[in-house]
Every structure is written in structure tokens, then in C-alpha cells.
Amino acid sequence: MDLTFNSRDYITEFIVDNKPSFEKKLLSEAVNVASKIKDILKTGNIDLLANAQKLVLYAVEQKEDELVKFAEQEGIVWAKHSLTLAFKLEWVQAIRRTLWYFLYQFDRLTNKSNDLDRFYTQEKRINDQIDQFLNNFFLSYSHYKDELISEQRKLVEHLSVPIIPVSSNVSVLPLIGMIDSYRIKTIEEKVLMEIADLKVQTLIIDLSGIVTMEKNIIDHFQKILNGISMMGCESVLTGLRPELVKNMIHSGISFRENVETRGTLQLTLKKFLEVEVH
């Protein structure tokens, strides 16, 4: 490989002056990523070759603050576009190998290749910087993904608590599926807010889609019913299945104080709507 060299060059100038050779060597070190460079540029507007040189210069020049900020930005971009972490890891390790190849060539051209003390000091310094980049990249990537999953879960949970107005003062809350500690908190938040916003006087909670609840969930649910009552709204439970009732009995929990229970949602709606019409 023909390299441009000036005896007065610093290592960073040597790398910049030999940019085409650096990129060629890098692509040969990262065979799997090389075939995806155009796709990644198109998908996430990420110029891998330009970013590789930026990482190398930050690492060599010991620009730690810039390197950490760059890693965090890269982590967010890769997470946002769901780009493969395996490609990123292969790419950074290829950058590491390519950088060391150029460091060796620079030392050879400057007659410093036999200076072992300098080599080991440089080895630790450079590798620590690249490891720090990887660490901050993965932390940023994971943090973004965790926040995204949390937001998506909140959206799904709110959509799974549909309070449906059926008249001017009567609403229905059909509950379906498993209710865990996270979802019961969402139910509490949305129910109390909607009662106030919609001025609900009667909330019919249909439990026909719930097979069972854990004791702590039943206890929390009872507190929600107490809260509904405190807001001046009447609670009506419908569709209680035998398994759920059995679980409630053995848990020693009763809803009789602040709630009315009825058989089916259809019959309950019929009664309340007929009363409102008359």
C-alpha cells in the first residue's frame, strides 16, 4: 500500500493525508459491513466512512468529551433506525485494526517502531478511547430503546383501558386480558381522570374478559372502586366469571360496599339506558 508521508507530519495528519488508503484498508477489514454501507447511508443518513475517520481522530487526539458525545449521538441514531448492533461492533473493531495498522506504518516511517515503552503507552491510550466509545454507544443505544419501549407500552396500556360513553352520564370500561401491577396503575390513572373530564355518574366495568387476578391486583382494584365512589360516581361490575369470584372469596375481598354487581353487560346497559329514556 502506497502511503503519503511527510517527516513533519503528526499521526492525525498522516491519517487524513492517506484517507483513500485508510478507507480501502477499513473496508477490507469489515467485509460484512462494507456491503451494507450504501444501505445504512440510505436508511439512517449515516456516513460510516466519514464517522470512522471522526472516531479515529477523536481517539488519537484524546478528545474525550467529543468522543463521548459522538458515541451517544451514534447510539441514538442506530437505535432510532433499528440498525444491527452486530454490524456496529464489527465496524468499530475493523476501525481499531485499521487504526493500528496506520499507527504501525507511521512509527515505521518515523523510525519509532522499536520504542516498546511508547508502543505500550500508546496501545493503552488508544484502545481505552475506542472502548469508551463502544461503552457509551451501547449505553445510549440501550437507553433510547428502553425509553421507546416504555412509551410504546404506555400507549398500548392506555389504549387497553377504553372508557366508552354510552349516554350523557353513563360510561363503560370493558377490561380484557391479564392485569398486572403496571396495567392496574394505568387503569387507576385513566379511570379517575375520565370520570372528572366526562362527568361520569355511572361507570360500568365489564370483567367478562378477565379470568383471574392476583390478590395484590384485586386489592388495588378495590381501592380504585373506593376512589370512584369518592368522586361521586357509581360503580357497576358486570361479567364476573366464576374463577374470578372464587379467587376474590379466598382472598377475603368483597366489593359490596361501594359497588353494584350485575350479570351481563348487555342487560346492565339495557336497564340504564331504559331508565335514562324514561
Rank of each mutant, 00 (worst) to 15 (best):
G44K: 01
L27T: 14
Y141M: 00
E276I: 09
F70P: 07
K63V: 02
N127I: 04
L83F: 00
K190A: 07
K145F: 05
S254V: 08
N258V: 09
K42C: 01
K270T: 12
K80A: 10
D2M: 12
I179V: 15
K25I: 11
H158P: 00
Q266C: 07
N169A: 12
K215G: 07
K36Q: 08
D47W: 02
L237E: 06
F87R: 00
R96W: 06
Q266W: 04
T261H: 03
D17N: 15
T186H: 08
L148E: 12
N135A: 14
E74N: 12
I76F: 03
E157G: 07
I149H: 01
V161M: 02
L237H: 07
S82I: 00
D197L: 11
T238M: 08
L148R: 08
N18S: 08
N136V: 08
R153N: 14
G227F: 05
N247S: 15
G263R: 13
E276W: 02
E29V: 06
Q152P: 00
E214M: 09
S229E: 08
Q93L: 13
D117M: 13
T268G: 06
I253C: 10
T268D: 04
L26W: 02
K88Q: 13
Q266Y: 12
S28L: 14
L267M: 14
E29D: 10
S160P: 05
R256I: 07
I187F: 03
I228W: 05
K271E: 14
Y10F: 12
F102R: 04
V77A: 08
L116K: 12
N6K: 15
D206K: 10
E157F: 11
P162V: 02
L155N: 07
Y144G: 00
I179P: 06
A52T: 06
T43F: 00
V60M: 10
N45G: 04
N135C: 11
L85I: 04
Q152T: 00
W100V: 11
E23H: 11
I126L: 14
I210F: 09
A34Q: 13
Y120G: 02
E123Y: 15
V166R: 00
G252T: 09
L192Q: 06
D39V: 10
C233H: 05
T110Y: 01
I46C: 05
I15V: 15
G239S: 09
K270M: 13
D9F: 15
L269D: 02
N127P: 06
I163Q: 05
S229I: 01
I37R: 04
G209F: 04
Q122I: 01
N51I: 00
